[in-house]
Write a protein that binds this DNA or RNA. Structure first.
Lengths: 214, 214
DNA sequence: ATGCTTGTTGATTGACCAGTCAATCTACCG
DNA sequence: CGGTAGATTGACTGGTCAATCAACAAGCAT
């Protein structure tokens, strides 16, 4: 997940030192933020986890907040990409939504700590979210909303639903399932992700489809 | 909402001074936390908002964290009470779930700042949530789960659903809707709460009911 | 009155930590 | 080489703020 190397130096000339330090810092930040939360984490913790000197963090990032923002943008961008990709695919609307749900739920298995930071630290911090960031969230929701609209046109989604609220309901359900996992509220079963996906499909996607003609 | 007076002195003898200072502090904390977030709030902000001296906060609460905890417990206790009340009522399972959903969504209208702190700040501090607190969350979820089980027995909920996940899906949807409102992601419409309730009912509660016999 | 308990005050303390900076190092270039 | 530009280091600083505390007030009991 997220192996896009973004170097200190943008042009590919010179620079043999560095060795992807920026990436190292980001990965360390994910780990530390996930463990202690954003405010509970010291920049020195991150530096230590990354195995670099304290000051170097400030060579790559303006400050602690930028670090969290970069983290969010990188991860959310991945989600956005996937949503766009699915949206453009020739699948039916319901299957599209299912694919996106799967991406989020599987994403947790792939990189739980990153998901924890995303879900727990970033999305809820309206005080941190700035224009750029809010815009990315809005866009994801907007794209999902369009898929719901598409579903209405296809006849697989009830026309008496508010697409925006339907989108929030779907996203919220997924977010909560991941939060449950993060908080360790319940013992995880094997195939937990598959089961969760199935339940979301049955309840929410099922709940969106028009009632069978009688 | 939440007018249960809890005095510094527990027994009702003596104590004519005080004048509900503890309550004042709690209400001030709700306001300040909602505005600036837990970590962004200074204890002095809360004291100021409450119109009392800095040190007095520490007369009523062990520390800043206890304040957040007390806030959470007070509010969550209200939710728990309501869930128990509804659960014990003679309503059908689907109507029970609807009532609880309504309580949460209307609760936002009644005291948006309190809901904001609950939804945004508390979950975020999974690192702060201690045994006692986690237990309360678990209990609420457990009660909801039992109502879902009840629905299965009544035949208004599909038997092929995992009750626990169904519960998380319902709660998550509600939580997200409130989060949307808190973040101001969308312009609020009039009757937003009613519409939201209706959508949750159609999609999720509807999605839980067994498919019509063909 | 006298003393005890609880309430109330706000200045002070002490810890903590984000961010800076001057120094050193590494690589590359002409 | 000698020079330049970025990379890397970690000690230090300055500000912030949670928590303490000593002093004073208010109510109550005897």
């Amino acid at each position: 997940m997220g192996d896009t190397e973004v170097r200190g130096r943008v042009d590919s000339t010179s620079n043999t030192v560095d060795g992807g330090k920026r990436e190292r810092i980001l990965r360390a930040a994910v780990k530390v933020f996930a463990q202690k939360g954003y405010f509970g984490s010291r920049v020195s913790d991150i530096a230590e986890e990354a195995g670099i000197a304290y000051g170097l963090v400030y060579h790559y990032f303006k400050n602690k907040e930028e670090l969290l923002l970069a983290l969010f943008q990188e991860s959310w961008d991945l989600l956005l990409r996937r949503i766009r990709e699915v949206r453009a695919s020739p699948l039916g609307a319901r299957e599209k939504l299912r694919q996106i749900a799967a991406f989020l739920l599987k994403g947790f298995r792939a990189d739980p700590e990153r998901m924890e930071v995303l879900v727990v630290e970033v999305i809820r911090s309206s005080k941190i979210l700035k224009g750029q960031t809010l815009e990315m969230i809005r866009e994801a929701f907007h794209l999902l909303e369009e898929i719901v609209e598409e579903g209405k046109r296809e006849g697989v989604v009830r026309k008496d639903l508010d697409s925006r609220l339907a989108t929030s309901i779907l996203y919220g359900a997924l977010d909560q399932i991941i939060t449950d996992w993060v908080l360790g509220l319940y013992p995880r079963r094997r195939d937990e992700e598959e089961l969760a996906l199935e339940m979301v499909d049955r309840i929410i996607l099922g709940g969106m489809t028009p009632p069978a003609r009688t």
